[in-house]
Design a protein around this nucleic acid. Structure first.
Length: 259
DNA sequence: GCGACAG
DNA sequence: ATCTTGTCGC
C-alpha cells in the first residue's frame, strides 16, 4: 500500500529532520487538482497511551458516497520521534505507514489529522504522507500551527484564507453552523478548492470529517484492547470487572500489528 | 529577547 | 496527544 511514492527515511535528529523536509518540499504536487469524485476516502489518526510511550495508528477507508467504512487497519508501536512542532510527522509516520500497508484496498484520497502546506516549511504531515504513498492528500488541522486569518461567517461552508508570509497556505473552514472552524490545507496532488470540497463532502454532521472520526475511534480502541493485563482486582467490584472485560483481548476483526 | 508552537 | 466536571442543547 505504501508503494508509489518516495521511500520514507526516519531522521536521527532534528537537524536531519529539517534537511529531509527541505529536500522533499519541492517534490510536492501543488497543482492537483485531485479526484473530484473519489470512490474511497481514507482517514488517518493516532492515539497515545497516557504514559506517552505507546501509540496506535489507524486508517479507515470509507465509501466516499455513503461514508460507510469498507476497510480498516491498525498498527501499535512507539512514537518514532520527540514531539517538536513542525517536525510532528516524524513522530507518527512510521506507525501510519505500517497501518496503510495492511489495507487491502488502495484509497483514492487521504484525509490527514494535521496540516499539509500550512506548515513553517510548507511540508506538514499531509504533504509527507501524500509524497510517500503517492496518493492525493489533504491536511485538516483542529488548531492552527502558522498563519493569520479572519473569522469565517458562522454558516457551514463559510471560509477565509489562511495566510502566512504573504501567501495563502490554506483555508479556515466552517464545517458546521456555529462551531469552531478547522484548518484545511493541501497535502499532495490536490488543489485547495478541491480539498475544501472533499472535506465538506466527508463532513455531513460533525465538526470533523467522518474519516477522521472513524480512524480516531479505531486507534483508541486498539490502544485499549492491546493493553497489557490489568492488575489483580477485587472479585465483587462491578466496575473493575467491567473494565477488565473491555480490556480483554477478545474478537478483533481489524488487522492489527505490533511494530 | 520573549512568546507561540499540528498531535 | 492525554488528564478532567459540569454544562448547554437537540
Amino acid at each position: 500500500m505504501t508503494g508509489g511514492g518516495v521511500p520514507y527515511r526516519p531522521p536521527a535528529d532534528v537537524a536531519e529532520a529539517l534537511r529531509v523536509q527541505e529536500e522533499l518540499r519541492s517534490r510536492v504536487d501543488l497543482v492537483g487538482p485531485g479526484p473530484t469524485a473519489p470512490a474511497t476516502v481514507a482517514g488517518l489518526d493516532v492515539a497515545y497511551a497516557e504514559s506517552g510511550d505507546r501509540l496506535a495508528a489507524a486508517v479507515t477507508v470509507l465509501d466516499a458516497a455513503t461514508l460507510a467504512v469498507v476497510d480498516e487497519a491498525v498498527s501499535v508501536g512507539r512514537p518514532a520521534f520527540d514531539y517538536v512542532p513542525g517536525l510532528f510527522a516524524f513522530r507518527e509516520l512510521p506507525a501510519l505507514l505500517a497501518a496503510l500497508d495492511r489495507l487491502t484496498v488502495r484509497p483514492d484520497l487521504l484525509i490527514c489529522d494535521g496540516h499539509g502546506l500550512a506548515h513553517p516549511r510548507r511540508f506538514g504531515l499531509a504533504c509527507h504522507l501524500g509524497l510517500v504513498t503517492g496518493l492525493p492528500s489533504i491536511g485538516v488541522g483542529k488548531t492552527p500551527l502558522i498563519g493569520v486569518w479572519d473569522e469565517p461567517a458562522p454558516e457551514r461552508g463559510a471560509w477565509t484564507p489562511l495566510r502566512d508570509g504573504g501567501e495563502v497556505v490554506g483555508r479556515v473552514l466552517r464545517t458546521r453552523d456555529g462551531v469552531k472552524p478547522v484548518f484545511v490545507s493541501v497535502g499532495h496532488r490536490m488543489s485547495l478548492e478541491n480539498a475544501v470540497d472533499r472535506v465538506l463532502a466527508s463532513t455531513p454532521r460533525y465538526r470533523l470529517p467522518e474519516t477522521t472520526r472513524t480512524a480516531d475511534r479505531l486507534c483508541r480502541m486498539a490502544l485499549t484492547e492491546d493493553r497489557p493485563a490489568a492488575a489483580p482486582t477485587d472479585e465483587g467490584d462491578p466496575a473493575a470487572s467491567a473494565s477488565q472485560r473491555a480490556a480483554a483481548p477478545g474478537r478483533r476483526r481489524t488487522r492489527t500489528r505490533r511494530m
